[in-house]
Write a protein that binds this DNA or RNA. Structure first.
Lengths: 138, 138
DNA sequence: CTTTGTGCAAACGATTTGCAGGATG
DNA sequence: CATCCTGCAAATCGTTTGCACAAAG
């Protein structure tokens, strides 16, 4: 557990959220993994030893965490939402074979020049999505 | 209609596909719009005057067209697949307010340097997704 | 005629919702 | 103790599937 419980609690409270075991569990789980799990994976993880959260609650927790900006939704596959507690801007790599997803550090692609964009568009953010084969699949 | 019917028919045949009114309709519709419609939008468009295609047929047509490489799926929104007959590599702009999607020419972002990627990853393709506000929403 | 495509309705899987009871601050 | 959260089950929404009939080559 790289993130301390008190830290997590403090963060949740700072956003005005009540700290419930379920909400804490979802956020802590997300913070302590490097992948971008689906709801199913989070749920399985949380209830591995003993049942702690229901499906609907995980969905609700994720939505709340997203609303306050602690969690992001990542869309790289059809029909499946993945979640990420890494809020800092970063890029993604997706293995076209096994579907594995890996973060790419923001610094990997130094400043993309947005000046050639059509006039009239106001940029808020951008990210590069790279698709290819990971170590195991290539 | 910027694309001629014969051209479209020729393209479909060249891929070994039977040319049915429904399949023709789906592909022609996709070719002649600049946005990236959802199945719902395509269906509505095709059946506007008279019913010509059923939902299941549009799904089937899109899947077939995707298999032969004439159409791409674009994932920029949760739970919704959009389709694109523009096969050439290009980037996307998405309005965070109204959800409008616009192509960005490949040449807008001159060669991204992929050399800083982790060793072991084999790149197949990449694209930049820009999020922001379009003309109307800003 | 053989093969492939279409349409309908039922099936499916991920996500959402209504609501009653329970926990948090 | 007022408010917000949880859990269950039913509802919803996009997409897929099974199968009988129709059309394309």
């Amino acid at each position: 557990m790289q993130y301390k419980a008190n830290e997590i609690i403090k963060t949740l409270k700072s956003k005005g959220l009540r700290v419930t075991p379920q909400r804490f569990g979802v956020y802590a789980n997300l913070l302590n993994r490097k992948d971008h799990p689906t709801v199913e994976q989070i749920l399985k993880d949380l209830n591995q030893e003993a049942p702690t959260s229901s499906q609907a609650t995980v969905y609700a927790a994720l939505q709340t965490l997203r609303e306050v900006g602690l969690v992001r939704e990542v869309l790289l596959e059809e029909g499946i939402s993945r979640y990420d507690a890494n809020i800092a801007p970063h890029h993604h790599f997706r293995c076209s074979c096994c579907g594995a997803i890996e973060d790419i550090d923001w610094s990997a692609f130094p400043g993309i020049d947005l000046s050639k964009l059509r006039v009239g568009l106001k940029v808020e953010r951008y990210e590069v999505t790279v698709q290819g084969l990971c170590d195991r699949c290539s």
